[in-house]
């Protein structure tokens, strides 16, 4: 043995420290370096196209100013970016701003399709948190070839909407009309279903996402004032500023469904209690939802809380003569009606 073990130990710890600095999730040097290189010219053009497309979709105009805010670059840079896009035939000057050419529109549709499909994928298949779908999709949309996009769409079963409720353009560029109107257009006491959350202004969007409001949710408007708008859902109350709430698109709740609005969740059942499934939360999506239905948990099914695990987290439920373990996170997404007495 040549070297003192203490020195070796120090060297070993040093190597581990260096590896940590390099590869630490998010803050590691490798990661920082990667995100620095993300903002290439093409990426900028594509983001600009998307912004203009979204504006046209909701019939707003795009100006140098709005675009520079969106891309967080100076107006001078934005102007030269627009000039470059114009020379490539992607945008054209209009009377009061800029608009997409046919070619620009087709390009934008491709990017939007990729973006929304990726979001759908991330939401359904990866278990990333709601506020992360968009961030990842922003990155992935640029590096996905058209063939990959189509493969993704096939894999997901050609979905129609992204997880924020926005329609996904079809491969040949057809896109459904926007659905719903801003939540601010309703009145106190109204029952509404969230159809879409507009993501164009990210800071507003992320406030809504942080509250956990998603398309498909049924809300009752408790208060509507210029200062704030208050909603309630099955368990929670949400308070949003009107600017934020105006990003929330909704339709009135269909009349035949109104009596369903107040329910308990499956996770609130105590061991031995029985409930009847009423519906799934809109947060229960894709494969999860299908798997539940395959297991025989569908609206109308009787279900009994049967068994606690040592940590109390997964619980076993008795459904159609079978004991099935579900995590509380999933049981939170199943609305039930508690039954009196044992079944």
């Amino acid at each position: 043995m040549t070297m003192h073990p203490g020195i070796l130990l120090a060297i070993g710890l040093g190597v581990i420290a260096i590896l940590c600095i390099l590869f630490w999730p998010r803050r590691g040097l490798v990661n920082l370096w990667r995100s620095l290189h993300l903002n290439t010219r093409r990426t900028r053009i594509e983001h600009a196209l998307k912004h203009m497309f979204n504006n046209e979709y909701i019939q707003q105009k795009t100006t140098v100013k709005s675009l520079s805010v969106k891309l967080s670059i100076s107006q001078r840079h934005t102007a030269s970016l627009l000039a470059r896009m114009e020379s490539r035939g992607l945008v054209k000057k209009t009377r009061d701003g800029y608009g997409l050419t046919e070619e620009g529109n087709a390009y934008a549709l491709r990017i939007v399709r990729a973006h929304r499909l990726w979001e759908r994928y991330l939401a359904d298949e990866t278990g990333l948190r709601g506020d992360e779908w968009h961030r990842y999709a922003e990155r992935l949309e640029h590096s996905t070839s058209p063939e990959q996009v189509e493969a993704l769409a096939d894999q997901l079963g050609q979905p129609l909407y992204d997880p924020h409720g926005a329609p996904i353009p079809s491969a040949d560029g057809v896109i459904g009309p926007p659905m719903g109107q801003p939540a601010t257009a309703f009145a106190t006491g109204d029952l509404i279903v969230v159809t879409r959350i507009d993501k164009e202004q990210e800071h507003l969007y992320s406030q809504i996402a942080a509250e956990g409001i998603v398309p498909g949710m049924q809300l009752r408007i408790l208060e509507m004032s210029p200062q704030r708008i208050r909603f309630s859902s099955q368990q929670n109350e949400y308070v949003l500023a009107p600017v934020v709430a105006s990003r929330l698109m909704a339709i009135p709740l269909p009349a035949e469904k109104t009596e369903e609005i107040c329910n308990d969740t499956l996770s609130s059942l105590k061991i031995g209690e029985t409930g009847k499934v009423v519906r799934f939360s809109p947060n229960c999506r894709g494969a999860e939802r299908r798997r539940l239905m395959d297991l025989g948990i569908i609206p109308g099914t009787l279900i009994r809380a049967d068994l606690n695990s040592p940590f109390g987290d997964p619980k076993a439920y008795f459904v159609r003569e079978t004991s099935i373990a579900l995590r509380n996170k999933l049981a939170d997404l199943i609305y039930i009606e508690k039954m009196k007495g044992a079944a």
Partner: peptide, 8 residues
Amino acid sequence: TYSLLSAS
């Protein structure tokens, strides 16, 4: 299999 209708 539980079902032929899903894509698991």
